[in-house]
Design a protein around this nucleic acid. Sequence first.
DNA 1: ATTTAAACGATAATCATTTTTAATTGGTTA
DNA 2: TAACCAATTAAAAATGATTATCGTTTAAAT
Lengths: 153, 153
Amino acid sequence: MKDVNGQILKILHEHNLKVTPQRKGILNYLMTHHNHPTVEMIRSNIVKDMSNLGTATVYNTLNTLVELGLVIEIQNGDGSTHYDYFAHPHFHMICTNCGKIDDVSFDGYMGEEKLLRENAEKETGYLTSKSHLEIYGICPNCQKKLRLNLINK
Amino acid sequence: MKDVNGQILKILHEHNLKVTPQRKGILNYLMTHHNHPTVEMIRSNIVKDMSNLGTATVYNTLNTLVELGLVIEIQNGDGSTHYDYFAHPHFHMICTNCGKIDDVSFDGYMGEEKLLRENAEKETGYLTSKSHLEIYGICPNCQKKLRLNLINK
DNA sequence: ATTTAAACGATAATCATTTTTAATTGGTTA
DNA sequence: TAACCAATTAAAAATGATTATCGTTTAAAT
Protein backbone atom coordinates (compact mmCIF):
# COMPACT_ATOMS: atom_id res chain seq x y z
CA MET A 1 0.00 0.00 0.00
CA LYS A 2 1.09 3.49 -0.73
CA ASP A 3 1.47 6.68 1.22
CA VAL A 4 -1.10 8.69 -0.68
CA ASN A 5 -0.82 11.64 1.65
CA GLY A 6 2.93 11.82 1.13
CA GLN A 7 2.47 11.68 -2.64
CA ILE A 8 -0.07 14.48 -2.48
CA LEU A 9 2.24 16.74 -0.50
CA LYS A 10 5.06 15.97 -2.93
CA ILE A 11 2.90 16.80 -5.93
CA LEU A 12 1.74 20.09 -4.47
CA HIS A 13 5.22 21.15 -3.40
CA GLU A 14 6.82 20.17 -6.70
CA HIS A 15 4.43 22.48 -8.52
CA ASN A 16 4.58 25.32 -6.01
CA LEU A 17 0.96 24.99 -5.08
CA LYS A 18 -0.14 25.88 -1.61
CA VAL A 19 -1.21 22.96 0.49
CA THR A 20 -4.86 23.47 1.30
CA PRO A 21 -7.42 21.03 2.72
CA GLN A 22 -9.46 21.44 -0.47
CA ARG A 23 -6.61 20.44 -2.76
CA LYS A 24 -5.61 17.56 -0.55
CA GLY A 25 -9.19 16.35 -0.50
CA ILE A 26 -9.66 16.56 -4.24
CA LEU A 27 -6.35 14.89 -5.05
CA ASN A 28 -6.99 12.22 -2.48
CA TYR A 29 -10.37 11.50 -4.00
CA LEU A 30 -8.93 11.21 -7.50
CA MET A 31 -6.04 9.01 -6.42
CA THR A 32 -8.04 6.57 -4.33
CA HIS A 33 -11.05 6.15 -6.58
CA HIS A 34 -10.94 4.54 -9.94
CA ASN A 35 -14.27 5.77 -11.14
CA HIS A 36 -14.34 8.74 -13.50
CA PRO A 37 -16.04 11.41 -11.45
CA THR A 38 -17.69 14.64 -12.49
CA VAL A 39 -17.16 17.89 -10.61
CA GLU A 40 -20.36 17.31 -8.70
CA MET A 41 -19.42 13.76 -7.72
CA ILE A 42 -16.14 14.98 -6.31
CA ARG A 43 -17.70 17.90 -4.49
CA SER A 44 -20.56 16.03 -2.89
CA ASN A 45 -18.28 13.26 -1.73
CA ILE A 46 -15.80 15.61 -0.09
CA VAL A 47 -18.45 17.81 1.48
CA LYS A 48 -19.33 14.88 3.72
CA ASP A 49 -15.93 15.08 5.45
CA MET A 50 -15.09 18.74 5.11
CA SER A 51 -17.30 21.53 6.43
CA ASN A 52 -17.72 23.03 2.97
CA LEU A 53 -16.33 23.14 -0.55
CA GLY A 54 -17.34 25.50 -3.32
CA THR A 55 -18.06 24.39 -6.83
CA ALA A 56 -15.71 26.98 -8.27
CA THR A 57 -12.91 25.63 -6.10
CA VAL A 58 -13.34 22.16 -7.51
CA TYR A 59 -13.27 23.58 -11.03
CA ASN A 60 -10.19 25.68 -10.27
CA THR A 61 -8.32 22.79 -8.73
CA LEU A 62 -9.17 20.39 -11.51
CA ASN A 63 -8.20 22.89 -14.18
CA THR A 64 -4.86 23.37 -12.48
CA LEU A 65 -4.28 19.63 -12.31
CA VAL A 66 -5.22 19.24 -15.95
CA GLU A 67 -2.71 21.92 -16.95
CA LEU A 68 -0.04 20.09 -15.02
CA GLY A 69 -0.88 16.91 -16.90
CA LEU A 70 -1.71 15.02 -13.71
CA VAL A 71 -5.37 14.72 -14.52
CA ILE A 72 -7.21 14.45 -17.79
CA GLU A 73 -10.70 15.31 -18.94
CA ILE A 74 -12.99 12.80 -20.59
CA GLN A 75 -16.30 13.34 -22.34
CA ASN A 76 -18.70 10.42 -22.36
CA GLY A 77 -21.55 12.28 -23.96
CA ASP A 78 -23.69 12.94 -20.88
CA GLY A 79 -23.00 16.68 -21.07
CA SER A 80 -20.58 17.04 -18.20
CA THR A 81 -16.86 16.49 -18.04
CA HIS A 82 -15.40 13.50 -16.25
CA TYR A 83 -11.94 13.47 -14.70
CA ASP A 84 -9.26 10.85 -14.41
CA TYR A 85 -6.04 10.81 -12.42
CA PHE A 86 -3.52 9.99 -15.13
CA ALA A 87 -0.73 8.23 -13.33
CA HIS A 88 -0.15 5.61 -15.99
CA PRO A 89 -0.71 5.87 -19.76
CA HIS A 90 -3.94 4.21 -20.72
CA PHE A 91 -6.89 4.77 -22.99
CA HIS A 92 -10.63 4.68 -22.57
CA MET A 93 -13.34 2.35 -23.67
CA ILE A 94 -16.68 4.12 -23.70
CA CYS A 95 -19.90 2.16 -23.88
CA THR A 96 -22.26 3.84 -26.32
CA ASN A 97 -25.17 2.14 -24.61
CA CYS A 98 -24.68 2.93 -20.91
CA GLY A 99 -21.97 5.62 -20.94
CA LYS A 100 -19.54 3.67 -18.77
CA ILE A 101 -15.87 4.57 -19.11
CA ASP A 102 -13.22 1.89 -18.59
CA ASP A 103 -9.48 2.38 -18.30
CA VAL A 104 -7.47 0.02 -20.47
CA SER A 105 -3.82 -0.63 -21.05
CA PHE A 106 -1.96 -3.56 -22.42
CA ASP A 107 1.67 -4.49 -22.96
CA GLY A 108 2.98 -2.46 -25.81
CA TYR A 109 0.41 0.29 -25.66
CA MET A 110 3.01 2.84 -24.58
CA GLY A 111 5.10 1.86 -27.58
CA GLU A 112 2.22 2.13 -30.00
CA GLU A 113 1.25 5.51 -28.60
CA LYS A 114 4.78 6.78 -28.98
CA LEU A 115 4.94 5.54 -32.56
CA LEU A 116 1.70 7.29 -33.46
CA ARG A 117 2.96 10.54 -31.95
CA GLU A 118 6.24 10.31 -33.86
CA ASN A 119 4.46 9.65 -37.13
CA ALA A 120 2.15 12.57 -36.47
CA GLU A 121 5.05 14.88 -35.70
CA LYS A 122 6.77 13.96 -38.93
CA GLU A 123 3.54 14.50 -40.84
CA THR A 124 2.53 17.84 -39.32
CA GLY A 125 5.48 19.59 -37.72
CA TYR A 126 3.68 19.67 -34.38
CA LEU A 127 5.62 19.25 -31.17
CA THR A 128 3.49 16.71 -29.35
CA SER A 129 3.18 16.07 -25.64
CA LYS A 130 0.34 13.65 -25.09
CA SER A 131 -2.60 11.92 -26.67
CA HIS A 132 -6.04 10.73 -25.77
CA LEU A 133 -7.54 7.67 -27.34
CA GLU A 134 -11.16 6.74 -26.92
CA ILE A 135 -12.60 3.56 -28.32
CA TYR A 136 -16.36 3.28 -28.59
CA GLY A 137 -18.38 0.13 -28.40
CA ILE A 138 -20.77 -1.98 -26.38
CA CYS A 139 -19.58 -3.24 -23.01
CA PRO A 140 -19.99 -6.93 -22.10
CA ASN A 141 -22.79 -6.11 -19.69
CA CYS A 142 -24.83 -4.24 -22.27
CA GLN A 143 -24.18 -7.00 -24.80
CA LYS A 144 -25.92 -9.38 -22.41
CA LYS A 145 -28.83 -7.01 -21.85
CA LEU A 146 -29.28 -6.37 -25.55
CA ARG A 147 -29.29 -10.09 -26.28
CA LEU A 148 -31.99 -10.63 -23.65
CA ASN A 149 -34.07 -7.85 -25.13
CA LEU A 150 -33.96 -9.56 -28.49
CA ILE A 151 -35.17 -12.82 -27.00
CA ASN A 152 -38.03 -11.20 -25.08
CA LYS A 153 -39.63 -9.84 -28.22
CA MET B 1 -14.96 16.77 -58.59
CA LYS B 2 -17.84 15.11 -56.84
CA ASP B 3 -21.58 15.41 -56.98
CA VAL B 4 -22.05 16.61 -53.43
CA ASN B 5 -25.75 17.18 -53.88
CA GLY B 6 -26.25 13.63 -55.09
CA GLN B 7 -24.32 12.29 -52.10
CA ILE B 8 -26.45 14.32 -49.75
CA LEU B 9 -29.69 13.01 -51.22
CA LYS B 10 -28.34 9.50 -51.00
CA ILE B 11 -27.36 9.90 -47.36
CA LEU B 12 -30.73 11.31 -46.37
CA HIS B 13 -32.69 8.67 -48.26
CA GLU B 14 -30.58 5.80 -46.95
CA HIS B 15 -31.40 6.82 -43.40
CA ASN B 16 -35.06 7.62 -43.98
CA LEU B 17 -34.59 11.28 -43.22
CA LYS B 18 -36.78 13.79 -44.94
CA VAL B 19 -35.00 15.98 -47.44
CA THR B 20 -35.26 19.52 -46.15
CA PRO B 21 -33.37 22.64 -47.21
CA GLN B 22 -31.96 22.90 -43.68
CA ARG B 23 -30.49 19.42 -43.73
CA LYS B 24 -29.15 19.84 -47.21
CA GLY B 25 -27.54 23.12 -46.19
CA ILE B 26 -25.92 21.74 -43.08
CA LEU B 27 -24.63 18.61 -44.78
CA ASN B 28 -23.37 20.63 -47.69
CA TYR B 29 -21.50 22.96 -45.37
CA LEU B 30 -19.86 20.07 -43.55
CA MET B 31 -18.90 18.25 -46.72
CA THR B 32 -17.44 21.21 -48.57
CA HIS B 33 -15.57 22.85 -45.70
CA HIS B 34 -12.60 21.33 -44.00
CA ASN B 35 -12.61 23.59 -41.02
CA HIS B 36 -14.06 22.23 -37.78
CA PRO B 37 -17.09 24.41 -37.27
CA THR B 38 -19.16 25.04 -34.17
CA VAL B 39 -22.95 25.16 -34.27
CA GLU B 40 -22.83 28.93 -34.51
CA MET B 41 -20.34 28.91 -37.38
CA ILE B 42 -22.57 26.60 -39.36
CA ARG B 43 -25.72 28.53 -38.60
CA SER B 44 -24.38 31.98 -39.38
CA ASN B 45 -22.86 30.80 -42.62
CA ILE B 46 -26.03 29.19 -43.87
CA VAL B 47 -28.27 32.06 -42.78
CA LYS B 48 -26.59 34.17 -45.43
CA ASP B 49 -28.07 31.99 -48.21
CA MET B 50 -31.25 30.77 -46.62
CA SER B 51 -33.97 33.02 -45.25
CA ASN B 52 -33.59 31.60 -41.76
CA LEU B 53 -32.28 28.71 -39.74
CA GLY B 54 -32.98 28.03 -36.08
CA THR B 55 -30.27 27.12 -33.62
CA ALA B 56 -32.25 24.14 -32.39
CA THR B 57 -32.46 22.81 -35.91
CA VAL B 58 -28.70 22.88 -36.28
CA TYR B 59 -28.31 21.03 -33.00
CA ASN B 60 -30.94 18.48 -33.93
CA THR B 61 -29.47 17.84 -37.33
CA LEU B 62 -25.94 17.51 -36.02
CA ASN B 63 -27.01 15.15 -33.25
CA THR B 64 -28.77 13.00 -35.81
CA LEU B 65 -25.68 12.93 -38.02
CA VAL B 66 -23.48 12.05 -35.06
CA GLU B 67 -25.75 9.15 -34.15
CA LEU B 68 -25.50 7.90 -37.71
CA GLY B 69 -21.72 8.03 -37.43
CA LEU B 70 -21.40 10.43 -40.35
CA VAL B 71 -20.18 13.30 -38.23
CA ILE B 72 -18.11 13.36 -35.08
CA GLU B 73 -17.79 15.79 -32.23
CA ILE B 74 -14.47 17.26 -31.15
CA GLN B 75 -13.63 19.25 -28.04
CA ASN B 76 -10.70 21.61 -28.31
CA GLY B 77 -11.15 23.20 -24.93
CA ASP B 78 -12.79 26.48 -25.97
CA GLY B 79 -16.07 25.46 -24.39
CA SER B 80 -18.11 24.65 -27.46
CA THR B 81 -18.31 21.52 -29.52
CA HIS B 82 -16.73 21.36 -32.96
CA TYR B 83 -17.99 19.07 -35.73
CA ASP B 84 -16.25 17.11 -38.41
CA TYR B 85 -17.64 15.22 -41.39
CA PHE B 86 -16.01 11.85 -40.89
CA ALA B 87 -15.83 10.39 -44.38
CA HIS B 88 -12.36 8.93 -44.01
CA PRO B 89 -10.64 7.64 -40.87
CA HIS B 90 -8.27 10.20 -39.47
CA PHE B 91 -7.23 11.64 -36.17
CA HIS B 92 -6.85 15.11 -34.75
CA MET B 93 -3.91 17.23 -33.76
CA ILE B 94 -5.01 19.89 -31.31
CA CYS B 95 -2.78 22.86 -30.57
CA THR B 96 -2.79 23.53 -26.85
CA ASN B 97 -1.72 27.10 -27.54
CA CYS B 98 -4.22 28.33 -30.15
CA GLY B 99 -6.89 25.63 -30.16
CA LYS B 100 -6.52 24.81 -33.84
CA ILE B 101 -7.66 21.35 -34.91
CA ASP B 102 -5.92 19.60 -37.80
CA ASP B 103 -7.03 16.43 -39.54
CA VAL B 104 -4.24 13.95 -40.03
CA SER B 105 -3.91 10.59 -41.63
CA PHE B 106 -0.95 8.68 -42.94
CA ASP B 107 -0.40 5.40 -44.71
CA GLY B 108 -1.00 2.63 -42.29
CA TYR B 109 -3.10 4.58 -39.85
CA MET B 110 -6.20 2.54 -40.63
CA GLY B 111 -4.21 -0.61 -39.92
CA GLU B 112 -2.88 0.69 -36.63
CA GLU B 113 -6.34 1.77 -35.58
CA LYS B 114 -7.76 -1.63 -36.35
CA LEU B 115 -4.99 -3.33 -34.40
CA LEU B 116 -5.62 -1.16 -31.36
CA ARG B 117 -9.33 -1.94 -31.48
CA GLU B 118 -8.68 -5.66 -31.75
CA ASN B 119 -6.30 -5.60 -28.81
CA ALA B 120 -8.83 -3.64 -26.81
CA GLU B 121 -11.62 -6.09 -27.64
CA LYS B 122 -9.49 -9.02 -26.51
CA GLU B 123 -8.61 -7.20 -23.31
CA THR B 124 -12.09 -6.02 -22.33
CA GLY B 125 -14.77 -8.03 -24.08
CA TYR B 126 -16.20 -4.88 -25.65
CA LEU B 127 -17.62 -5.01 -29.14
CA THR B 128 -16.00 -1.93 -30.69
CA SER B 129 -17.18 0.17 -33.59
CA LYS B 130 -14.92 3.20 -33.82
CA SER B 131 -12.27 5.24 -32.09
CA HIS B 132 -11.22 8.81 -31.68
CA LEU B 133 -7.62 9.76 -31.27
CA GLU B 134 -6.52 13.22 -30.28
CA ILE B 135 -2.89 14.20 -30.10
CA TYR B 136 -2.01 17.37 -28.23
CA GLY B 137 0.93 19.61 -28.94
CA ILE B 138 2.15 22.92 -30.27
CA CYS B 139 1.46 23.67 -33.92
CA PRO B 140 4.31 24.93 -36.16
CA ASN B 141 2.84 28.42 -36.20
CA CYS B 142 2.70 28.73 -32.45
CA GLN B 143 6.21 27.30 -32.18
CA LYS B 144 7.38 30.26 -34.22
CA LYS B 145 5.42 32.76 -32.12
CA LEU B 146 6.65 31.30 -28.87
CA ARG B 147 10.24 31.46 -30.04
CA LEU B 148 9.79 35.14 -30.95
CA ASN B 149 8.31 35.86 -27.54
CA LEU B 150 11.35 34.39 -25.91
CA ILE B 151 13.66 36.63 -27.91
CA ASN B 152 11.67 39.77 -27.18
CA LYS B 153 12.12 39.42 -23.44
C1' DA C 1 -55.17 17.32 -53.66
C1' DT C 2 -55.35 15.47 -49.00
C1' DT C 3 -53.45 13.78 -45.12
C1' DT C 4 -50.14 12.81 -41.60
C1' DA C 5 -46.07 12.37 -39.34
C1' DA C 6 -41.90 14.64 -39.30
C1' DA C 7 -39.38 18.74 -39.11
C1' DC C 8 -38.84 23.55 -38.10
C1' DG C 9 -37.90 27.77 -35.29
C1' DA C 10 -38.85 31.18 -31.74
C1' DT C 11 -38.59 31.33 -27.09
C1' DA C 12 -37.95 29.82 -22.64
C1' DA C 13 -35.65 26.82 -19.63
C1' DT C 14 -31.77 24.27 -18.03
C1' DC C 15 -27.27 22.93 -17.06
C1' DA C 16 -22.28 23.24 -16.83
C1' DT C 17 -18.76 26.30 -16.27
C1' DT C 18 -16.52 30.87 -15.50
C1' DT C 19 -16.13 35.31 -13.50
C1' DT C 20 -16.51 38.49 -9.92
C1' DT C 21 -15.83 40.00 -5.52
C1' DA C 22 -14.81 39.97 -0.89
C1' DA C 23 -13.17 37.39 2.83
C1' DT C 24 -9.87 33.98 4.38
C1' DT C 25 -5.59 31.49 4.86
C1' DG C 26 -0.94 29.19 3.94
C1' DG C 27 3.55 29.97 4.17
C1' DT C 28 7.28 33.12 4.31
C1' DT C 29 9.89 36.60 6.54
C1' DA C 30 11.11 39.63 10.17
C1' DT D 1 5.91 34.04 17.29
C1' DA D 2 3.72 37.77 14.93
C1' DA D 3 2.56 39.95 10.99
C1' DC D 4 2.22 40.37 6.36
C1' DC D 5 0.86 39.39 1.58
C1' DA D 6 -0.07 37.02 -2.35
C1' DA D 7 -2.56 33.04 -3.29
C1' DT D 8 -6.67 30.74 -2.43
C1' DT D 9 -11.34 30.12 -1.37
C1' DA D 10 -16.50 30.40 -1.92
C1' DA D 11 -20.96 32.60 -2.63
C1' DA D 12 -23.46 34.65 -5.99
C1' DA D 13 -24.13 36.37 -10.41
C1' DA D 14 -23.12 35.97 -15.16
C1' DT D 15 -22.23 33.58 -19.22
C1' DG D 16 -22.61 30.38 -22.85
C1' DA D 17 -23.92 26.11 -24.71
C1' DT D 18 -27.46 22.94 -25.28
C1' DT D 19 -32.20 21.11 -24.77
C1' DA D 20 -37.28 21.36 -24.23
C1' DT D 21 -41.62 23.19 -25.51
C1' DC D 22 -45.07 23.93 -28.67
C1' DG D 23 -47.53 26.11 -32.35
C1' DT D 24 -46.61 26.29 -37.30
C1' DT D 25 -44.94 24.56 -41.51
C1' DT D 26 -43.59 21.11 -44.80
C1' DA D 27 -42.16 16.64 -47.12
C1' DA D 28 -43.83 12.91 -49.18
C1' DA D 29 -47.10 8.99 -49.15
C1' DT D 30 -51.80 7.86 -50.62
